[in-house]
C-alpha cells in the first residue's frame, strides 16, 4: 500500500486497517467486498482518529487543551466539540461523586509509573491536591475558567470518544459490519455475515498459563482498564497507576484489569475506570450497576 502509515490487509471477507494513533495500535475491521471502498473508509477512519488526537492531546501546544491549561486563570472559549466533552466530563464527575476527575492529571508530576520503585512522599503529594478538583473549575458553556496551576486532561476519555466517533462515521458509509479497536477499546456496529460474530480475545495479564478468554461480540462496546503493565513496586507493595483524585494516592486492591461491556465505548470506558477506582469493591460496584464485566485480579 502506498500509505505506509495505514496498513491494509484482507483477512477473508474482512478488510483490516492498522495504524497508530493516540499512542496505541489501532485497528479497523470492515466486512466489505470492494477493496477501494475499504481503502477509502480505512483512510477516513485514520484521519478522524488523528483529528481527535490533535484536538485533545495534552502534548501539543496548538490545541484547545493547551489554551485552557495555559490560560493562567483567565476564561477560555471552547468549540462545540470540546464543550460537549467538558459537559460529559462534568456529568461523570458529579455522578461519580468526584472519583472521575479530568483535573487529576497534575498528579503525574510526582507519580511516574516507569516500573521503578520511586514512590513520592506524602509531602510531595499533599500540595497537589489543592490543584485538583473539577468543582473549582468554572464551566459555563462555552467558557471555561481554570484556577491558575490547574490542568485538564481529556486523555482518559479521548480514545473511547474517538472509537465511538469513528464507528459512527463508518456505520453511515459502510454497507457491512464494522469494528473499531483503538488500543483495546473497541466498538462494533454489527456482526459480520461471514462468521456471525466478532471474536474478541481478552488478553490475560495474569500468571503464565492463564487462558485467554474469548468473547463473541455481535455489537456494542468493550473497554478494559487495568494496571497490569503500569505500576510501581516497592517493599513488595504494588502501587497501581490508578490514582484516587481525592487522596492523590494509588487505589489499593485494584484489579489487574477490568473489562466492561456497554452500548458505547465512552460509557463502558467510564465504568471500567470507575471500577478500578473502587479497588477491592470493583466487582460489587459493577454488579450494582448491572453491567457485564470480566475482572482479572
Amino acid at each position: 500500500m502506498v500509505n505506509e502509515a495505514l496498513q491494509v490487509e484482507r483477512r477473508g471477507a474482512i478488510w483490516v486497517g492498522e495504524f497508530r494513533a493516540m499512542a496505541s495500535p489501532c485497528e479497523v475491521h470492515l466486512e466489505l467486498r470492494s477493496g477501494k471502498l475499504a481503502q477509502q473508509l480505512l483512510s477516513m477512519a485514520r484521519m478522524e482518529a488523528l483529528r481527535i488526537e490533535r484536538l485533545f492531546s495534552r502534548y501539543r501546544d496548538d490545541n484547545v487543551i493547551h489554551r485552557i491549561n495555559e490560560a493562567n486563570g483567565k476564561p477560555v472559549t471552547v468549540d462545540e466539540e470540546t464543550a460537549r466533552m467538558l459537559d460529559f466530563a462534568d456529568t461523570c464527575f458529579h455522578a461519580s461523586d468526584g472519583l472521575f476527575d479530568i483535573t487529576s492529571g497534575v498528579l503525574r508530576e510526582v507519580w511516574r509509573f516507569d516500573g521503578s520503585d520511586t514512590i513520592p512522599t506524602a509531602a510531595e503529594v499533599e500540595p497537589l491536591l489543592a490543584r485538583i478538583g473539577w468543582q473549582r473549575v468554572t464551566w459555563e458553556k462555552p467558557h471555561i475558567c481554570l484556577p491558575a496551576g490547574m490542568q485538564v486532561d481529556l486523555g482518559g476519555i479521548g480514545k473511547e470518544y474517538a472509537v465511538d466517533r469513528v464507528l459512527g462515521l463508518l456505520r453511515e458509509r459502510s454497507p457491512g459490519a464494522c469494528l473499531v479497536n483503538f488500543g483495546g477499546d473497541l466498538h462494533a456496529s454489527g456482526a459480520p455475515q461471514s462468521a456471525g460474530f466478532w471474536s474478541v480475545g481478552i488478553e490475560s495479564h495474569g500468571s503464565a498459563g492463564m487462558a485467554t478468554q474469548s468473547l463473541q461480540l455481535q455489537r456494542g462496546a468493550l473497554t478494559t482498564s487495568g494496571d497490569a503493565r503500569r505500576y510501581l513496586l516497592r517493599d513488595g507493595v504494588r502501587y497501581s497507576h490508578v490514582l484516587n483524585p481525592k487522596t492523590g494516592w494509588p487505589v489499593v486492591g485494584a484489579p489487574a484489569a477490568v473489562t466492561v461491556a456497554g452500548d458505547t465505548c465512552i460509557e463502558a470506558g467510564i465504568m471500567s475506570t470507575l471500577a478500578l477506582l473502587h479497588g477491592p469493591d470493583a466487582e460489587s460496584f459493577l454488579d450494582s450497576h448491572e453491567l457485564h464485566y470480566w475482572v482479572q485480579r
Binding site: 460537549r84 456529568t91 461523570c92 466517533r165 452500548d263 458505547t264 465512552i266
Partner: peptide, 9 residues
C-alpha cells in the same frame, strides 16, 4: 451516563 454520551456523540 447514557444521556451524556448520547449528547456527546
Amino acid at each position: 451516563l447514557s444521556a451524556a454520551s448520547c449528547a456527546l456523540l
